[in-house]
Design a protein around this nucleic acid. Structure first.
Lengths: 105, 105
DNA sequence: CAGTATCCGTTTTGATACTG
DNA sequence: CAGTATCAAAACGGATACTG
């Protein structure tokens, strides 16, 4: 990771990665199982999905909790209180995108 | 560029690149000359600076205007009205970064 | 002054077969 | 079910010498 030079980087760090912003929006409604997230983004490879979930977890944006100890595990991912604070900004980004889809092409 | 699947991508497209968000914030105050921008971000290579300015121009986020035709050119970059609409979101990203610098480490 | 051209290293992502 | 391991490909960024 690069040295952080400005507050903008602090934020960008959180959503850095091809699908992180989308994952966070998907988790905004409620917690989700690993398989749910995977199904939601069929174009994302497992390696990348896991990597981004792990990074978000390490940054304290989401938590990972396991139910069951035998092979059919149940793993849930959910936003932390801290992670939730990014949602308003993500929603604004989404809203801006909706409004400007035409110009953006 | 990838196919756009969601409004979030429409927005992320605009700030995609190591320094784009910072360049836009720097242009938010007023138009700037190429050399000013270059001096502001001494760690950014010229190739990348030009590339990102060009992309922003093609996306209609900024304009490029030239004064003078002989070798000492004067080139100014400035936000378009459309480009200005991203600033409120950039400022929120900045504000979030300031507030959460501690947690983010 | 404001770029362009070239070359190259690093980072990020993808596909897929396999495992606790 | 929820991952890991391995290998390869592509995207991205950096350095620097040169040009209109």
């Amino acid at each position: 990771m690069a040295v952080i030079y400005s507050p903008i980087d602090t934020f960008l760090q959180v959503i850095k990665g091809k699908y992180k912003a989308k994952i966070l929006i998907y988790l905004a409604a409620r917690q989700r199982r690993y398989s749910e997230i995977k199904r939601k983004f069929p174009l994302m490879s497992e390696r990348i999905l896991i990597k981004q979930l792990k990074e978000l977890e390490q940054q304290g944006i989401i938590t990972r909790s396991v139910t069951g100890t035998k092979p059919p595990l149940k793993v849930q991912y959910q936003l932390t209180a801290y992670g939730s604070t990014v949602c308003p900004i993500l929603k604004q980004m989404w809203f801006w995108g909706e409004q400007h889809e035409q110009q953006a092409r």
